[in-house]
Design a protein around this nucleic acid. Sequence first.
DNA 1: GTGAAAGCGCTAACAC
DNA 2: GTGTTAGCGCTTTCAC
Lengths: 343, 343
Amino acid sequence: MAKRVSISDIAESLGVSKALVSLVINDKADAHGISAETQKRVRDKIRELNYQPDLFARSFRVGKTNTIGLIVSDISNRFYARIARDIEDHAWNNGYTVIICSTDENVEKEMKQIKLLRDRKIDGLIISSSQDNSDYFNKLSEAGFPHVLIDRRFDDMQSANVSVDNYGGARLAAEHLLKQGFSSFAVVALSPDHISTIRERIKGFTDTLGKANVQIPPCWLISLPFDRIDKELDNRLQSLHRQGQLPEAIFTLNNNLTSSCLKHLTKLSVNIPEDVAVIGFDDIMYFEHTHPSVSAIGQPTDRISEEAFKLLLQQINNGKADGRQRSVVLPVDIIIRESSIKH
Amino acid sequence: MAKRVSISDIAESLGVSKALVSLVINDKADAHGISAETQKRVRDKIRELNYQPDLFARSFRVGKTNTIGLIVSDISNRFYARIARDIEDHAWNNGYTVIICSTDENVEKEMKQIKLLRDRKIDGLIISSSQDNSDYFNKLSEAGFPHVLIDRRFDDMQSANVSVDNYGGARLAAEHLLKQGFSSFAVVALSPDHISTIRERIKGFTDTLGKANVQIPPCWLISLPFDRIDKELDNRLQSLHRQGQLPEAIFTLNNNLTSSCLKHLTKLSVNIPEDVAVIGFDDIMYFEHTHPSVSAIGQPTDRISEEAFKLLLQQINNGKADGRQRSVVLPVDIIIRESSIKH
DNA sequence: GTGAAAGCGCTAACAC
DNA sequence: GTGTTAGCGCTTTCAC
């Protein structure tokens, strides 16, 4: 790799100090009263030698990398892919670059990733965490490390965070299903079951059903391990089907679960929604075009990204994590399509 | 932020030199004949003071960041999201971290991103480029900067690259459609039209039709600007429909185009495949569950990622871009579903 | 076996 | 006003 021209090359060839050159590069020359002529000489030489400041060295000196981290469970999940794209845009527009990590819901991996990113001296972190309590992040807050939790939340957390009205969304789903006249319900969830979004969605759903005096029996509370969603759901659905134990309606708790459910129900020749109705949390474009089209609770991914980046930038610019907890909860909406209509 | 303990803290508190500490940290102590006891003392002190080496400072010194860049047109596109996820995994397993950038097919933005990433001293780059020739990358090769082009290719390029048999995939699509007995065809493509994947897919399709003496009239060669796919396709399809000019079959050139086509055809109450058949390049999971299910050419995203990362790592470890051009072309397959079956 | 010194490229703080 | 010196945290070379 051709050797790069550095600040001292241009300083030497001009017979001035590196500091002087640095000043004109950073537009601080005027403020320091460097003569216009010296400045011009420097600038000319910079052009002549095609000097490009080494951002990395600058970062090292200044302690700021203009890089942020984004950690989610799986970047290829539509929901997170959209968020990643939005955050990347905000970052780019503000001179930041983003490092992305997927945890696969593995807490140890997540912690390693955070540690690595901090070692790499990222300026801040946006994360949808797989951990089950706020301890780690509260420590991060105390250490003054800029970060914001998205999507999932913890009790007693001090970190800035932006999430969505999971409880309310689940209630919308339940109310809709009840109104349609369904009377038996299953929930398809994800484990590990400490994940706040999942917990809140379950609670919102069961609470609402409870008010209508409807209970969900344990066999219809289906929780699938993250890394075997598809296969496990296949088994569970098959065995329920064999025993003639399928519920009238199923509430799936994220877009992967919804897709998987759709797939296996179809495979079993179960008609949706005639035999079993389906509504999912988290809407994605394809649900409009599946057969049948799928009802879902829509999340405002663009707002999540926007608020998260804003909160992060505030912390970075304040030089530390903000003392006051900043919590943003965004509304969701229900999109009713064919899959949840009673026939 | 609590001040971090540095290498000199532990050197001082032990009354040894920083160099010594550095040696034991990097497992070079034995090779240098540092006594086992001294090593132990150092290690104990490291644990006692909870010293964590500053990776960033090390990177600065050593000139290696263990970070690679991944640049694609849009990370929220399923195809690239999958690739990103796979590459991230390979990277993680090899101690690398990945910075992701989306170009929106904007060449200037892409060049700025490459420049920024190089300034940030990434060790290498994997890119699906939006540029229209190999000049920029050949310069990168000459400069010895490790990089591999994926997905899209250029004539006369020296860079390592991994792509897919676009021509052959398109031929499969054409042959299948012909065999079904369709006789008029449209192609839905993407502009800018210098994109190699698009060009090759068009050529593979038209060549194959040509051999059967079938031509595609200009009005059925639909090319949509990247940022207005959906709206433009809506217009074009509407006007063709109004004039009763829809073809019997449509070949869509990527998964976004396929989805959009599906959507607007459905909106116009055009029956698929009875009125118009559809087959797309690039398969995604949902095509199995849409109404109708969609035929597609499947690309081996996992292999693309694997080969790309392997080629990149080779270059990084060789200290420079490999002299010999390394080209990998992966096979594709055709998945025939309902949307392309003649009735 | 171990240490001292130099220096990666840059900038903040401090002289003259 | 106009400059320079010191040093970020680390590794590497070489001297003892």
